[in-house]
Design a protein around this nucleic acid. Structure first.
Lengths: 79, 79
DNA sequence: AATTACTACGGAGTATACTCTACAAAATGG
DNA sequence: CCATTTTGTAGAGTATACTCCGTAGTAATT
């Protein structure tokens, strides 16, 4: 339900689907590796600039990432 | 070009289309009025939680807002 | 002209986004 | 097993997101 947790789950899934390590994703997006780790654990949430940096590194549109987060947020009410 | 500026433009347009004052939008989204002003002037960029709060107050999906930002970013290269 | 919205903008404060360093814990593969 | 890669995590620092107070300027209405 919480946005950070939904985003965390989506981000990790997308990274793994792209066969990238956290370090490689960090390099491609000009972010710190430990920060990527924090995002994937839902400890932090990104700004939209960070979102766009990640989306570029993951070869997916930022708006699609947000769509996935929206879907994930809805489904969190079921379990 | 810059994401903050594109977002700023989109946010102001959406707010005006919804016939809301900055203060009304601030109330609906549980944000500060002066911060809405800063967002619309491109001084700050939101986190995704703030994006979702604004999208709810504006009756539009967060992913659609990001889509509009993407379009605006592309068009910024022409002028 | 005066009143009433509405917005720009300042400063000062708190919370959190984000970086960097370093080390430990897992996980993976040979 | 062992070696390598990968990830979690802590702590300390900087930048910026966000709040709150106030004041001035602008626009619209009467």
């Amino acid at each position: 339900m919480a946005i950070e947790l939904s985003f965390a789950k989506i981000l990790k899934t997308l990274r793994i689907n792209n066969k990238l390590s956290q370090e490689e994703l960090a390099f491609r997006s000009n972010l710190d590796r430990t920060y990527i780790s924090m995002l994937e654990r839902g400890i932090h949430q990104p700004t939209i600039s960070t979102l766009f940096a990640l989306s570029k590194a993951l070869n997916i549109k930022a708006s699609v990432i947000i769509q996935l987060v929206e879907l994930e947020c809805e489904n969190k009410n079921e379990s």
